[in-house]
Design a protein around this nucleic acid. Structure first.
Lengths: 206, 206
DNA sequence: AACCCCTCTCTTACGGCGTAAGACGATTAT
DNA sequence: ATAATCGTCTTACGCCGTAAGAGAGGGGTT
Protein backbone atom coordinates (compact mmCIF):
# COMPACT_ATOMS: atom_id res chain seq x y z
CA UNK A 1 0.00 0.00 0.00
CA UNK A 2 2.78 2.32 -0.85
CA UNK A 3 1.74 5.76 -2.10
CA UNK A 4 2.57 6.38 -5.69
CA UNK A 5 2.23 10.15 -5.89
CA UNK A 6 -0.62 10.17 -8.32
CA UNK A 7 -2.68 13.15 -9.42
CA UNK A 8 -5.46 13.88 -11.83
CA UNK A 9 -2.88 15.17 -14.28
CA UNK A 10 -0.75 12.05 -14.09
CA UNK A 11 -3.81 9.89 -14.58
CA UNK A 12 -4.80 11.88 -17.64
CA UNK A 13 -1.29 11.79 -19.01
CA UNK A 14 -1.11 8.03 -18.67
CA UNK A 15 -4.53 7.74 -20.26
CA UNK A 16 -3.42 9.88 -23.17
CA UNK A 17 -0.29 7.78 -23.67
CA UNK A 18 -2.33 4.62 -23.59
CA UNK A 19 -4.89 5.95 -26.02
CA UNK A 20 -2.25 7.25 -28.40
CA UNK A 21 -0.59 3.88 -28.29
CA UNK A 22 -3.54 1.51 -28.46
CA UNK A 23 -6.65 3.50 -29.34
CA UNK A 24 -9.66 4.64 -27.37
CA UNK A 25 -11.23 1.21 -27.31
CA UNK A 26 -8.23 -0.16 -25.43
CA UNK A 27 -8.61 2.24 -22.54
CA UNK A 28 -9.97 0.57 -19.43
CA UNK A 29 -9.72 1.61 -15.84
CA UNK A 30 -7.97 -1.61 -14.89
CA UNK A 31 -5.41 -1.27 -17.65
CA UNK A 32 -4.87 2.37 -16.82
CA UNK A 33 -4.31 1.42 -13.22
CA UNK A 34 -1.83 -1.27 -14.20
CA UNK A 35 -0.01 1.37 -16.25
CA UNK A 36 0.34 3.48 -13.13
CA UNK A 37 1.18 0.64 -10.77
CA UNK A 38 -2.08 0.83 -8.94
CA UNK A 39 -5.42 -0.99 -8.66
CA UNK A 40 -8.26 0.25 -10.82
CA UNK A 41 -10.32 1.54 -7.92
CA UNK A 42 -7.53 3.83 -6.83
CA UNK A 43 -8.10 5.94 -9.90
CA UNK A 44 -11.53 6.81 -8.60
CA UNK A 45 -9.89 8.90 -5.96
CA UNK A 46 -8.68 11.26 -8.68
CA UNK A 47 -11.47 11.01 -11.19
CA UNK A 48 -15.19 10.43 -10.72
CA UNK A 49 -15.57 7.89 -13.51
CA UNK A 50 -14.25 6.77 -16.85
CA UNK A 51 -16.20 9.32 -18.85
CA UNK A 52 -14.44 12.05 -16.90
CA UNK A 53 -11.15 10.62 -18.09
CA UNK A 54 -12.28 10.84 -21.69
CA UNK A 55 -13.60 14.36 -21.17
CA UNK A 56 -10.30 15.27 -19.59
CA UNK A 57 -8.38 14.03 -22.61
CA UNK A 58 -10.54 16.07 -24.95
CA UNK A 59 -10.25 19.17 -22.82
CA UNK A 60 -6.52 18.77 -22.53
CA UNK A 61 -6.11 18.47 -26.26
CA UNK A 62 -8.37 21.40 -26.98
CA UNK A 63 -6.45 23.54 -24.54
CA UNK A 64 -3.54 23.60 -26.97
CA UNK A 65 -5.63 25.26 -29.64
CA UNK A 66 -4.98 28.96 -29.83
CA UNK A 67 -7.77 31.32 -30.68
CA UNK A 68 -6.82 34.98 -30.89
CA UNK A 69 -9.58 36.83 -32.65
CA UNK A 70 -7.58 39.87 -33.63
CA UNK A 71 -7.11 41.48 -37.02
CA UNK A 72 -8.95 40.48 -40.19
CA UNK A 73 -11.24 37.60 -39.31
CA UNK A 74 -10.25 35.35 -42.16
CA UNK A 75 -6.68 35.53 -40.98
CA UNK A 76 -7.28 34.58 -37.41
CA UNK A 77 -9.74 31.95 -38.55
CA UNK A 78 -6.98 30.48 -40.68
CA UNK A 79 -4.59 30.51 -37.75
CA UNK A 80 -7.20 28.91 -35.56
CA UNK A 81 -7.87 26.20 -38.15
CA UNK A 82 -4.18 25.47 -38.50
CA UNK A 83 -3.63 25.22 -34.79
CA UNK A 84 -6.73 23.08 -34.35
CA UNK A 85 -5.56 20.78 -37.11
CA UNK A 86 -2.15 20.43 -35.49
CA UNK A 87 -3.71 19.58 -32.14
CA UNK A 88 -5.89 16.91 -33.70
CA UNK A 89 -3.06 15.42 -35.71
CA UNK A 90 -1.01 15.16 -32.55
CA UNK A 91 -3.58 12.75 -31.09
CA UNK A 92 -5.61 11.31 -33.91
CA UNK A 93 -6.92 8.54 -31.71
CA UNK A 94 -9.01 11.16 -29.95
CA UNK A 95 -10.87 12.13 -33.10
CA UNK A 96 -13.83 9.85 -32.50
CA UNK A 97 -14.27 11.50 -29.13
CA UNK A 98 -13.71 15.06 -30.27
CA UNK A 99 -16.08 14.68 -33.14
CA UNK A 100 -18.96 13.86 -30.86
CA UNK A 101 -18.47 16.00 -27.76
CA UNK A 102 -19.92 19.47 -27.92
CA UNK A 103 -17.94 22.31 -26.40
CA UNK A 104 -19.23 22.70 -22.88
CA UNK A 105 -16.37 23.45 -20.54
CA UNK A 106 -16.31 27.00 -19.17
CA UNK A 107 -13.02 27.76 -20.88
CA UNK A 108 -14.35 26.51 -24.17
CA UNK A 109 -17.42 28.66 -23.88
CA UNK A 110 -15.36 31.75 -23.13
CA UNK A 111 -13.22 31.18 -26.18
CA UNK A 112 -16.31 30.60 -28.26
CA UNK A 113 -17.82 33.83 -27.02
CA UNK A 114 -14.73 35.85 -27.85
CA UNK A 115 -14.61 34.50 -31.38
CA UNK A 116 -18.31 35.12 -31.84
CA UNK A 117 -17.96 38.71 -30.67
CA UNK A 118 -15.15 39.29 -33.12
CA UNK A 119 -17.30 38.00 -35.94
CA UNK A 120 -20.22 40.16 -34.90
CA UNK A 121 -17.92 43.15 -35.26
CA UNK A 122 -17.34 42.01 -38.83
CA UNK A 123 -21.02 42.28 -39.61
CA UNK A 124 -22.23 38.74 -38.92
CA UNK A 125 -25.29 38.45 -36.74
CA UNK A 126 -25.08 36.27 -33.65
CA UNK A 127 -26.36 33.05 -35.12
CA UNK A 128 -24.36 33.50 -38.32
CA UNK A 129 -21.29 33.94 -36.19
CA UNK A 130 -21.90 30.71 -34.36
CA UNK A 131 -22.46 28.94 -37.63
CA UNK A 132 -19.22 30.24 -39.08
CA UNK A 133 -17.36 28.95 -36.07
CA UNK A 134 -18.91 25.51 -36.14
CA UNK A 135 -18.47 25.33 -39.88
CA UNK A 136 -14.77 26.01 -39.66
CA UNK A 137 -14.32 23.71 -36.68
CA UNK A 138 -16.19 20.83 -38.25
CA UNK A 139 -14.37 21.40 -41.49
CA UNK A 140 -11.10 20.89 -39.68
CA UNK A 141 -12.34 17.79 -37.93
CA UNK A 142 -13.52 16.41 -41.23
CA UNK A 143 -10.24 17.08 -42.98
CA UNK A 144 -8.23 15.50 -40.22
CA UNK A 145 -10.55 12.51 -40.15
CA UNK A 146 -9.79 12.04 -43.83
CA UNK A 147 -6.09 12.68 -43.37
CA UNK A 148 -5.47 10.50 -40.36
CA UNK A 149 -8.61 8.42 -40.50
CA UNK A 150 -8.50 5.37 -38.36
CA UNK A 151 -11.03 3.17 -36.73
CA UNK A 152 -11.24 3.32 -32.94
CA UNK A 153 -9.61 0.04 -32.05
CA UNK A 154 -7.63 -0.45 -35.21
CA UNK A 155 -4.77 1.95 -35.41
CA UNK A 156 -2.97 1.48 -38.69
CA UNK A 157 -4.16 3.57 -41.66
CA UNK A 158 -5.10 0.50 -43.66
CA UNK A 159 -3.68 0.11 -47.15
CA UNK A 160 -7.28 -0.38 -48.37
CA UNK A 161 -8.40 -3.98 -47.97
CA UNK A 162 -9.93 -5.50 -51.10
CA UNK A 163 -9.11 -3.31 -54.03
CA UNK A 164 -8.79 -4.01 -57.72
CA UNK A 165 -6.73 -1.46 -59.61
CA UNK A 166 -8.34 -2.48 -62.92
CA UNK A 167 -11.77 -1.76 -61.57
CA UNK A 168 -10.82 1.56 -59.98
CA UNK A 169 -8.18 3.16 -62.15
CA UNK A 170 -8.61 6.72 -60.92
CA UNK A 171 -8.55 5.69 -57.28
CA UNK A 172 -5.53 3.53 -57.97
CA UNK A 173 -3.73 6.44 -59.52
CA UNK A 174 -4.66 8.77 -56.70
CA UNK A 175 -3.43 6.28 -54.12
CA UNK A 176 -0.30 5.44 -56.07
CA UNK A 177 1.65 8.33 -54.60
CA UNK A 178 0.72 7.14 -51.13
CA UNK A 179 -1.75 9.99 -50.90
CA UNK A 180 1.04 12.43 -50.54
CA UNK A 181 3.42 13.80 -47.99
CA UNK A 182 2.38 15.78 -44.94
CA UNK A 183 3.08 18.87 -47.01
CA UNK A 184 0.62 17.70 -49.65
CA UNK A 185 -1.99 17.28 -46.96
CA UNK A 186 -1.25 20.69 -45.63
CA UNK A 187 -1.51 22.23 -49.07
CA UNK A 188 -4.83 20.59 -49.76
CA UNK A 189 -6.06 21.58 -46.33
CA UNK A 190 -5.12 25.23 -46.87
CA UNK A 191 -6.59 25.22 -50.33
CA UNK A 192 -9.96 23.89 -49.26
CA UNK A 193 -9.99 26.08 -46.18
CA UNK A 194 -9.45 29.18 -48.26
CA UNK A 195 -12.25 28.06 -50.54
CA UNK A 196 -14.55 27.79 -47.57
CA UNK A 197 -13.54 31.03 -45.87
CA UNK A 198 -13.80 33.00 -49.08
CA UNK A 199 -17.41 32.00 -49.38
CA UNK A 200 -18.42 32.73 -45.79
CA UNK A 201 -19.60 36.29 -45.37
CA UNK A 202 -22.32 38.18 -43.57
CA UNK A 203 -25.60 37.95 -45.44
CA UNK A 204 -25.58 41.72 -45.66
CA UNK A 205 -22.63 44.02 -45.38
CA UNK A 206 -19.02 43.85 -46.62
CA UNK B 1 -36.93 -23.52 -29.07
CA UNK B 2 -39.44 -22.25 -31.52
CA UNK B 3 -38.00 -20.78 -34.72
CA UNK B 4 -38.50 -17.08 -35.00
CA UNK B 5 -37.88 -16.53 -38.70
CA UNK B 6 -34.82 -14.33 -38.26
CA UNK B 7 -32.45 -13.13 -40.95
CA UNK B 8 -29.45 -10.87 -41.21
CA UNK B 9 -31.76 -8.12 -42.44
CA UNK B 10 -34.13 -8.45 -39.51
CA UNK B 11 -31.23 -8.42 -37.09
CA UNK B 12 -29.86 -5.25 -38.66
CA UNK B 13 -33.27 -3.62 -38.70
CA UNK B 14 -33.77 -4.33 -35.01
CA UNK B 15 -30.29 -3.04 -34.28
CA UNK B 16 -31.00 0.14 -36.18
CA UNK B 17 -34.24 0.67 -34.29
CA UNK B 18 -32.48 0.11 -31.00
CA UNK B 19 -29.63 2.44 -31.87
CA UNK B 20 -31.99 5.15 -33.10
CA UNK B 21 -33.93 4.83 -29.89
CA UNK B 22 -31.17 4.52 -27.29
CA UNK B 23 -27.86 5.33 -28.95
CA UNK B 24 -24.92 3.26 -30.07
CA UNK B 25 -23.64 2.72 -26.56
CA UNK B 26 -26.87 0.98 -25.62
CA UNK B 27 -26.50 -1.66 -28.28
CA UNK B 28 -25.53 -5.00 -26.84
CA UNK B 29 -25.96 -8.45 -28.29
CA UNK B 30 -28.04 -9.56 -25.33
CA UNK B 31 -30.35 -6.61 -25.58
CA UNK B 32 -30.64 -7.02 -29.31
CA UNK B 33 -31.53 -10.66 -28.80
CA UNK B 34 -34.16 -9.74 -26.22
CA UNK B 35 -35.60 -7.30 -28.74
CA UNK B 36 -36.00 -10.14 -31.19
CA UNK B 37 -37.24 -12.71 -28.70
CA UNK B 38 -34.09 -14.77 -28.82
CA UNK B 39 -30.96 -15.47 -26.80
CA UNK B 40 -27.86 -13.43 -27.59
CA UNK B 41 -25.92 -16.35 -29.02
CA UNK B 42 -28.59 -17.00 -31.61
CA UNK B 43 -27.61 -13.78 -33.35
CA UNK B 44 -24.21 -15.24 -34.09
CA UNK B 45 -25.86 -17.54 -36.58
CA UNK B 46 -26.68 -14.51 -38.72
CA UNK B 47 -23.74 -12.27 -37.99
CA UNK B 48 -20.12 -13.08 -37.18
CA UNK B 49 -19.78 -10.60 -34.34
CA UNK B 50 -20.93 -7.28 -32.98
CA UNK B 51 -18.65 -5.21 -35.18
CA UNK B 52 -20.32 -6.73 -38.21
CA UNK B 53 -23.63 -5.44 -36.90
CA UNK B 54 -22.23 -1.93 -36.67
CA UNK B 55 -20.66 -2.18 -40.11
CA UNK B 56 -23.99 -3.39 -41.43
CA UNK B 57 -25.77 -0.37 -40.01
CA UNK B 58 -23.31 2.00 -41.61
CA UNK B 59 -23.47 0.23 -44.95
CA UNK B 60 -27.25 0.21 -44.85
CA UNK B 61 -27.42 3.92 -44.16
CA UNK B 62 -24.87 4.77 -46.82
CA UNK B 63 -26.78 2.72 -49.36
CA UNK B 64 -29.52 5.36 -49.36
CA UNK B 65 -27.14 8.05 -50.53
CA UNK B 66 -27.48 8.74 -54.23
CA UNK B 67 -24.48 9.63 -56.28
CA UNK B 68 -25.15 10.33 -59.95
CA UNK B 69 -22.14 12.11 -61.39
CA UNK B 70 -23.86 13.57 -64.45
CA UNK B 71 -24.00 17.13 -65.68
CA UNK B 72 -22.04 20.04 -64.16
CA UNK B 73 -20.01 18.69 -61.27
CA UNK B 74 -21.01 21.29 -58.76
CA UNK B 75 -24.62 20.41 -59.33
CA UNK B 76 -24.30 16.71 -58.75
CA UNK B 77 -21.97 17.37 -55.86
CA UNK B 78 -24.70 19.51 -54.33
CA UNK B 79 -27.26 16.77 -54.87
CA UNK B 80 -24.91 14.24 -53.36
CA UNK B 81 -24.29 16.43 -50.33
CA UNK B 82 -28.01 16.97 -49.82
CA UNK B 83 -28.80 13.31 -50.04
CA UNK B 84 -25.90 12.41 -47.78
CA UNK B 85 -27.07 14.96 -45.25
CA UNK B 86 -30.59 13.57 -45.32
CA UNK B 87 -29.32 10.04 -44.77
CA UNK B 88 -27.24 11.13 -41.79
CA UNK B 89 -30.03 13.17 -40.27
CA UNK B 90 -32.32 10.17 -40.52
CA UNK B 91 -30.05 8.26 -38.13
CA UNK B 92 -27.93 10.75 -36.23
CA UNK B 93 -27.01 8.16 -33.64
CA UNK B 94 -24.84 6.55 -36.29
CA UNK B 95 -22.69 9.64 -36.77
CA UNK B 96 -19.96 8.57 -34.37
CA UNK B 97 -19.63 5.36 -36.36
CA UNK B 98 -19.82 6.92 -39.80
CA UNK B 99 -17.31 9.57 -38.94
CA UNK B 100 -14.65 7.01 -38.22
CA UNK B 101 -15.18 4.22 -40.74
CA UNK B 102 -13.49 4.66 -44.08
CA UNK B 103 -15.34 3.63 -47.21
CA UNK B 104 -14.24 0.10 -47.93
CA UNK B 105 -17.20 -1.92 -49.16
CA UNK B 106 -17.05 -2.86 -52.86
CA UNK B 107 -20.17 -0.83 -53.62
CA UNK B 108 -18.71 2.18 -51.89
CA UNK B 109 -15.49 1.93 -53.86
CA UNK B 110 -17.37 1.67 -57.15
CA UNK B 111 -19.34 4.79 -56.35
CA UNK B 112 -16.19 6.58 -55.33
CA UNK B 113 -14.50 5.62 -58.58
CA UNK B 114 -17.39 6.89 -60.69
CA UNK B 115 -17.40 10.22 -58.93
CA UNK B 116 -13.62 10.51 -59.24
CA UNK B 117 -13.79 9.78 -62.96
CA UNK B 118 -16.39 12.47 -63.45
CA UNK B 119 -14.16 14.97 -61.69
CA UNK B 120 -11.17 13.99 -63.76
CA UNK B 121 -13.21 14.84 -66.83
CA UNK B 122 -13.64 18.29 -65.33
CA UNK B 123 -9.93 18.83 -65.24
CA UNK B 124 -9.01 17.64 -61.74
CA UNK B 125 -6.15 15.24 -61.52
CA UNK B 126 -6.69 11.94 -59.74
CA UNK B 127 -5.56 12.94 -56.28
CA UNK B 128 -7.31 16.30 -56.47
CA UNK B 129 -10.50 14.46 -57.37
CA UNK B 130 -10.23 12.23 -54.34
CA UNK B 131 -9.59 15.21 -52.15
CA UNK B 132 -12.64 17.04 -53.48
CA UNK B 133 -14.77 14.04 -52.70
CA UNK B 134 -13.48 13.58 -49.18
CA UNK B 135 -13.69 17.31 -48.57
CA UNK B 136 -17.34 17.42 -49.50
CA UNK B 137 -18.16 14.24 -47.62
CA UNK B 138 -16.40 15.32 -44.45
CA UNK B 139 -17.96 18.73 -44.74
CA UNK B 140 -21.39 17.11 -44.67
CA UNK B 141 -20.47 14.94 -41.72
CA UNK B 142 -19.20 17.96 -39.87
CA UNK B 143 -22.28 20.02 -40.56
CA UNK B 144 -24.59 17.26 -39.46
CA UNK B 145 -22.50 16.68 -36.35
CA UNK B 146 -23.07 20.30 -35.48
CA UNK B 147 -26.72 20.21 -36.42
CA UNK B 148 -27.70 17.02 -34.67
CA UNK B 149 -24.71 16.69 -32.39
CA UNK B 150 -25.18 14.27 -29.61
CA UNK B 151 -22.95 12.18 -27.45
CA UNK B 152 -23.04 8.42 -28.02
CA UNK B 153 -24.97 7.32 -24.98
CA UNK B 154 -26.74 10.54 -24.24
CA UNK B 155 -29.42 11.23 -26.78
CA UNK B 156 -30.98 14.58 -26.06
CA UNK B 157 -29.41 17.64 -27.70
CA UNK B 158 -28.58 19.21 -24.36
CA UNK B 159 -29.78 22.73 -23.65
CA UNK B 160 -26.15 23.57 -22.78
CA UNK B 161 -25.32 22.69 -19.17
CA UNK B 162 -23.70 25.47 -17.19
CA UNK B 163 -24.14 28.68 -19.05
CA UNK B 164 -24.27 32.29 -17.95
CA UNK B 165 -26.01 34.61 -20.37
CA UNK B 166 -24.24 37.63 -18.86
CA UNK B 167 -20.89 36.15 -19.52
CA UNK B 168 -21.69 35.02 -23.05
CA UNK B 169 -24.07 37.55 -24.57
CA UNK B 170 -23.47 36.70 -28.21
CA UNK B 171 -23.84 32.99 -27.62
CA UNK B 172 -26.94 33.65 -25.60
CA UNK B 173 -28.43 35.65 -28.41
CA UNK B 174 -27.53 33.05 -31.00
CA UNK B 175 -29.08 30.30 -28.92
CA UNK B 176 -32.14 32.37 -28.04
CA UNK B 177 -33.97 31.39 -31.21
CA UNK B 178 -33.39 27.74 -30.39
CA UNK B 179 -30.73 27.70 -33.09
CA UNK B 180 -33.36 27.79 -35.74
CA UNK B 181 -35.79 25.61 -37.57
CA UNK B 182 -34.83 22.72 -39.84
CA UNK B 183 -35.15 25.18 -42.72
CA UNK B 184 -32.61 27.49 -41.08
CA UNK B 185 -30.23 24.59 -40.81
CA UNK B 186 -30.81 23.71 -44.42
CA UNK B 187 -30.20 27.27 -45.50
CA UNK B 188 -26.98 27.53 -43.57
CA UNK B 189 -25.89 24.16 -44.89
CA UNK B 190 -26.54 25.19 -48.48
CA UNK B 191 -24.85 28.52 -47.96
CA UNK B 192 -21.66 27.04 -46.55
CA UNK B 193 -21.67 24.23 -49.10
CA UNK B 194 -21.85 26.72 -51.96
CA UNK B 195 -19.00 28.63 -50.39
CA UNK B 196 -16.92 25.50 -50.34
CA UNK B 197 -17.80 24.27 -53.82
CA UNK B 198 -17.20 27.66 -55.36
CA UNK B 199 -13.65 27.56 -54.10
CA UNK B 200 -12.81 24.04 -55.20
CA UNK B 201 -11.41 23.94 -58.70
CA UNK B 202 -8.67 22.21 -60.64
CA UNK B 203 -5.30 23.80 -59.97
CA UNK B 204 -5.00 24.44 -63.68
CA UNK B 205 -7.83 24.66 -66.18
CA UNK B 206 -11.33 26.16 -66.03
C1' DA C 1 -42.57 -45.50 -40.46
C1' DA C 2 -37.96 -44.86 -39.36
C1' DC C 3 -33.89 -42.71 -40.22
C1' DC C 4 -30.65 -39.02 -40.90
C1' DC C 5 -29.15 -34.54 -41.55
C1' DC C 6 -29.39 -29.85 -41.65
C1' DT C 7 -30.94 -25.62 -39.70
C1' DC C 8 -31.70 -23.04 -35.96
C1' DT C 9 -31.75 -22.12 -31.00
C1' DC C 10 -30.23 -22.58 -26.39
C1' DT C 11 -27.02 -23.51 -22.24
C1' DT C 12 -22.97 -22.99 -20.03
C1' DA C 13 -18.78 -20.82 -19.27
C1' DC C 14 -14.74 -17.57 -19.37
C1' DG C 15 -12.45 -13.46 -18.93
C1' DG C 16 -13.09 -8.74 -19.24
C1' DC C 17 -15.54 -4.40 -18.05
C1' DG C 18 -17.27 -0.05 -14.81
C1' DT C 19 -17.90 0.95 -10.31
C1' DA C 20 -20.42 0.76 -5.33
C1' DA C 21 -19.14 -0.08 -0.57
C1' DG C 22 -16.18 -0.21 2.73
C1' DA C 23 -11.85 -2.05 5.13
C1' DC C 24 -7.28 -0.78 6.28
C1' DG C 25 -2.50 0.96 6.24
C1' DA C 26 0.17 5.43 5.98
C1' DT C 27 0.63 10.09 6.81
C1' DT C 28 -0.35 14.36 8.99
C1' DA C 29 -2.35 17.38 12.62
C1' DT C 30 -3.26 17.95 17.30
C1' DA D 1 0.13 9.50 21.70
C1' DT D 2 -4.15 10.04 19.74
C1' DA D 3 -7.13 11.30 16.31
C1' DA D 4 -8.26 12.69 11.72
C1' DT D 5 -7.44 12.48 7.02
C1' DC D 6 -5.70 10.54 2.89
C1' DG D 7 -4.55 7.10 -0.42
C1' DT D 8 -4.89 2.43 -1.58
C1' DC D 9 -6.74 -2.12 -1.80
C1' DT D 10 -10.38 -6.03 -1.47
C1' DT D 11 -14.51 -7.76 -2.50
C1' DA D 12 -18.57 -7.93 -5.00
C1' DC D 13 -22.33 -7.12 -8.47
C1' DG D 14 -24.22 -7.03 -12.82
C1' DC D 15 -23.08 -6.08 -17.22
C1' DC D 16 -20.45 -7.24 -21.67
C1' DG D 17 -18.67 -10.19 -26.19
C1' DT D 18 -18.30 -14.62 -27.57
C1' DA D 19 -16.16 -19.79 -27.72
C1' DA D 20 -17.85 -24.42 -27.51
C1' DG D 21 -21.00 -27.50 -28.00
C1' DA D 22 -25.58 -29.70 -26.86
C1' DG D 23 -30.12 -30.42 -28.45
C1' DA D 24 -34.69 -29.47 -30.64
C1' DG D 25 -37.38 -29.37 -34.82
C1' DG D 26 -38.43 -30.17 -39.49
C1' DG D 27 -37.50 -32.08 -44.35
C1' DG D 28 -35.94 -35.57 -47.40
C1' DT D 29 -34.86 -40.16 -48.31
C1' DT D 30 -35.69 -44.81 -47.76
Amino acid sequence: MKRVGLSREKVLQAALDLVDREGVAALSMRKLGRELGVEAMTLYYYVPNKDAVLDGLVERTLADVEVRPEGPWREWARRFAGSFRAALLAHPALLPLLATRPVSTPGGLDTLERAAQALVKEGFDASEALHVITTVATFVIGQVLAEAGRTPGHDEPEPVPDFDAERHPVLAQALAGGLGTPEDHRDRFDFALDALLAGLRPRQGP
